[in-house]
């Protein structure tokens, strides 16, 4: 019974993906129609400069926003886990968790209006583009990092940090030699999650981006409305391959011993 559910669910999740992977090697111009084996769509993909440009921009924005989200989320998670009860703490917690639950269309509109308002008041940001997408994705990612960091900090034995202080470590040394190494797995997971969210986001980027800064998902979304070529299938294979390699690396690193 459980196994049947698991098989059904995994089959459902994988069916379109596997079909994409199979038909990525089809000669036919029509997606999901078999026309003999070919790698022409991979070649076409490699020659599609607009797509490559968008992909490169997306990767850079994803890495940058995951990094900023890591810093902000670490600070947020620290305050949530370690500052006890302070004035406004319920509001602080609600705001820190809000990006997790806000519908993306609302977040997108809200951040766009923020940038427009800031520009009217201060002149910055003079135009919307990669910078504003970076900030928007960081705002989203920091909430995810914060949750992971808070949970990890809360689960740590407080005696670990106390014993470090007892053995002569200054507060900074306690953080650097004990706390930080122990929360690294959560930080890595948070960074990866923020990276993935950024790399897959259509809605926020559509709202807050400007001309000349088209991310990969936004580009693909516009292509989808025009009608996709089997290039999309080839791209899916490339993404899956990348993810499998990354996942394999993560698995090897995290293996104890």
């Amino acid at each position: 019974m459980k196994r049947a559910f698991l098989a059904l669910g995994l089959g459902f999740l994988w069916a379109p993906v596997l079909l994409m992977a199979a038909y990525a090697f089809s000669e036919s111009r029509v997606p999901f129609q078999w026309g003999g084996f070919s790698t022409r769509w991979f070649t076409a993909l490699a020659a599609n400069e607009r797509l490559l440009e968008a992909a490169w921009l997306s990767l850079r924005i994803a890495a940058a926003s995951a990094s900023l989200a890591l810093l902000l989320g670490l600070a947020l998670g620290w305050v949530l886990a370690r500052h006890g009860h302070f004035a406004g703490r319920p509001i602080f917690g609600a705001l820190a968790g809000a990006p997790l639950v806000l519908p993306e269309v609302v977040t997108g509109l809200a951040l766009l209006l923020l940038f427009v308002g800031l520009q009217a008041l201060t002149g910055w940001p003079a135009q919307r583009g990669a910078m504003t997408v970076w900030l928007a994705h960081s705002a989203l990612g920091m909430a995810y990092v914060a949750v992971l960091v808070q949970a990890r900090l809360a689960s740590l034995d407080p005696a670990l940090e106390e014993v470090a202080a007892d053995l002569g470590a200054s507060p900074l040394a306690v953080f650097g030699t004990v706390t930080l190494p122990l929360i690294v797995p959560s930080l890595a997971a948070g960074w990866l999650l923020a990276f993935t969210l950024s790399l897959d986001d259509v809605v926020l980027a559509s709202f807050v981006s400007g001309p000349g800064a088209t991310t990969l998902p936004v580009y693909l979304f516009s292509q989808l409305r025009l009608g996709m070529t089997p290039e999309a299938n080839a791209l899916a294979v490339v993404m899956l391959g990348g993810a499998a390699v990354l996942g394999g690396i993560a698995w090897v690193i995290r293996r104890p011993g």
Partner: peptide, 12 residues
Amino acid sequence: PPARAVAMMFQS
């Protein structure tokens, strides 16, 4: 604690 010539062994 770091400035004290006292060492502690925790229960855990």
